[in-house]
Design a protein around this nucleic acid. Structure first.
Lengths: 192, 192
DNA sequence: AGCAAAACAAGCAAGCATGCTTGCTTTGAC
DNA sequence: GTCAAAGCAAGCATGCTTGCTTGTTTTGCT
């Protein structure tokens, strides 16, 4: 009762998947308040009743969606190719511009107000954040034993977050590219 | 009709002010969806009817609140003291940690989904962003005629935004201080 | 002091999202 | 082929927020 049990039928699993994907898309496009279960169900191509069969309450649905977003983001992270530092910086920043980041951003802001979501989303961000930092250090070929290197990389990721946030309203890819180019150079000097 | 006319009575102006301040506080604490006009009116200490007398529709209220936030942020910006670069960086970052930034963040995210808000909030961010950049260049004593300096400062402000965003869920002032110290050093080298 | 206008308070109807309940269809096993 | 269980669809009741409408108090001016 209440425990999310592993689905036993293929159709059910497919529907669950579609519902979660639709939930993430709705979050990215219409935000938290606009992501009503009717909207998610309609986008997933199922009835609202079906949605509430898989996720009895709206909170259940988006609790699962949080995990889904975390999984997708980790997956995108691991798909990053190894290149020169400028390309790596650009690729990292690109992680914060897609619909996945938009959905995550909506979840962060919603979690800052909804008690129920806060703990789960905080855990998500901690986990994904650690993964991101680890992979960033690896891809940038940074030596974390040197003092300041850890903070430099953290600042870079914070800058990427900020660029993604600025990208929420106005799609300023041109400005972003210039900033990325400049700071990739500064970073290259700082990391040696 | 519909045009927000200048209030003629002192009590009215005070109530308007309290309503706007309460709207900003509600935004920062309870987000966009949670900032119902009842909540704002209660926080302002007036009845809901009074709130709807001053702002006939909810959109009117928060349209005015957007302007209010922009004004407050510009004011906070101009109050920044001139100090050494590390202190200036810390002060700039601090601009992105208070309730004003939280309210602005809620507005950004809400505006990314609500058509009506988007244009106004976009204009707000453009204006405040320009002011912030200008004052940052001035306080940092940066020579924008040198290539790359403009992008360097922009990247710093983007990092500040990202730090503020990270601060939304977990109040990690310690990490922020370390990142600020490190990036202040990087910036000092880059600006010469 | 009186008066008109503004400011404020309270109640009412409409719209919407959620959660529950009921009934029908599909699945997979015997 | 049948049957029980899971998946799915639709309708209903509740609670909440908004906007409007009506009535009362306060303000500023003559």
């Amino acid at each position: 009762m209440g425990v999310v049990t592993a689905p036993k039928q293929d159709r059910s699993r497919a529907t669950r998947q579609r519902l979660l994907a639709a939930a993430v898309a709705c979050l990215a496009e219409q935000g938290w308040a606009g992501s009503t279960v009717s909207a998610v169900a309609e986008r997933a191509g199922v009835s609202r009743g079906a949605a509430q069969h898989h996720f009895p309450t709206r909170e259940d649905l988006f609790t699962a969606a949080v995990e889904y977003v975390a999984e997708e983001r980790s997956q995108a992270l691991r798909a990053l190719p190894t290149q020169d530092r400028t390309a790596v910086v650009a690729a990292l920043v690109d992680l914060y511009t897609g619909p996945l980041f938009r959905a995550a951003l909506q979840l962060w802001v919603a979690a800052s107000n909804e008690e129920q979501l806060r703990s789960r989303v905080t855990e998500l961000e901690a986990r994904v954040g650690r993964d991101t930092h680890r992979i960033a250090v690896q891809l940038l070929n940074a030596d974390e034993s040197r003092p300041g290197v850890r903070e430099t990389v953290q600042g870079l990721l914070d800058m990427a977050r900020g660029l993604g946030l600025a990208n929420l309203l106005t799609d300023d890819a041109a400005r972003r590219d210039r900033v990325v180019a400049q700071w990739a150079g500064l970073l290259d000097e700082a990391l040696g």
